[in-house]
Amino acid sequence: MTALVTDAVSWAFLASGSFLVVVGALGLIRMPDFYTRLHAAGITDTLGADLILMGLMVQAGFSLVTVKLLLIGAFLFFTSPTSTHAIANAALTAGLNPRIADGAGAGTDSAAPEGDGK
């Protein structure tokens, strides 16, 4: 019985986490400019990954594996927002303006990195 409950809970976590990762990936492709894409990628990094980790922790129960997963979670919790911040900051320093409305900054949009998931 408990096995069923833990399975159900962990699958719920895993499924929602995976869903968010897919949404993040879609956003990465579909969003119009660099900063909004970064925003979409952020979802994958933080909530998506953390939910998946939670699901795995529920699966693992109270063991050394859970401790390790917790540590990974903590690591991601610090590094993902930091790297997103650093990338955005670097883009801004390099002179890439956010596309606020049509026209403004559209000229520099072509300078966005080419690795946009095509």
């Binding site: 690591f75 610090f78 590094t79 930091t82 911040h85 650093a86 900051n89 320093t93």
Partner: peptide
């Protein structure tokens, strides 16, 4: 040096030890 990246510096200092 990434002087203007205050966030980066703080987080890096925190993480290097671990």
């Amino acid at each position: 040096t990434m002087d203007h990246h205050l966030v980066l510096r703080v987080v890096t200092k925190m993480l290097i030890g671990p």
